[in-house]
Amino acid sequence: MTKSKHSYHFKKSHFAFPYTIISIIFVIVPLLILVYYAFTDKYTGGFTLNNFSMFGEGSLWITLGISFLMAFLTTLICFLLAYPLAIALCKINANRRFILVMIFVLPMWINSLLRIYSVKLLFNDFLLIDRGFFLSLIGMVYDFFPFMLLPIYTILSQMNNSYFEASTDLGANPYKTFMKVKLPLSIPGIVSGVLMVFMPAVSTFAINDILGSSQYWLFGNEIYFWFQKGLYNIGSAFAFIMLVLILISVAISSALNKIVDPRSKSLKSRGETL
């Protein structure tokens, strides 16, 4: 038995190699290109901030506002629909529950564009409702709903019943038990649900293209427009702004998550010792 033959040891971290390569090619490099384009002139290739000059105009901010309003409403409606549903699903016995969860998750397996076209058909041809802001909203809620439901359902179904028993035992009625125990404990699920819905909703343009009215644009439409025109530098600048805004909202959500996470230090800091 010679050791030299087996000198190469396969480590667990080596399994990450394929994906690392993919992410370098499709995520890191494009991001660098995007940043490069955003800050350079189309013709000279030198550094410039001119690509951002469009943001001086008010109309662009309105577009941005509409995008965030749309994403916010989508997230809110999804949450209001998903949370009670997740609670109800947890109360159903295990066999039937699986089937019901499947029914809600099933649409995820169908291409989202196909689903949006079917919504369009349903509303335009059968219900004779024309495209517009609210139809677009309905389409987005329909499209992103499973992404809100799944994380909330997962966290609620794993929650130990003894917490609620302890709460009622200590004198909390069902409402207080919900507010003081169930809701705080489900915040990690809510946060990931919100992220999963808000992020794609704020940058979408396809749904709005199909269902929305032509009177307004979303930020996603704007980015799409510039790239389509071949003005990559301006498009990149727009995409860069979107990226920053998304990063800010992620930072806010994770800060929110930290407040309720028991492992965070924020709970500890108090002058007094007990």
């Binding site: 302890a166 009622t168 200590l170 404990l185």
Partner: peptide, 24 residues
């Protein structure tokens, strides 16, 4: 009568301490 109206308190087998709250 529901538990929250009874003059009794329980120490649970697996403690059931609230993980989102500190000891205090």
């Amino acid at each position: 009568i529901p538990p929250y109206k009874r003059p009794v308190n329980t120490v649970f087998q697996k403690y059931a301490l609230f993980p989102h709250l500190n000891v205090f």
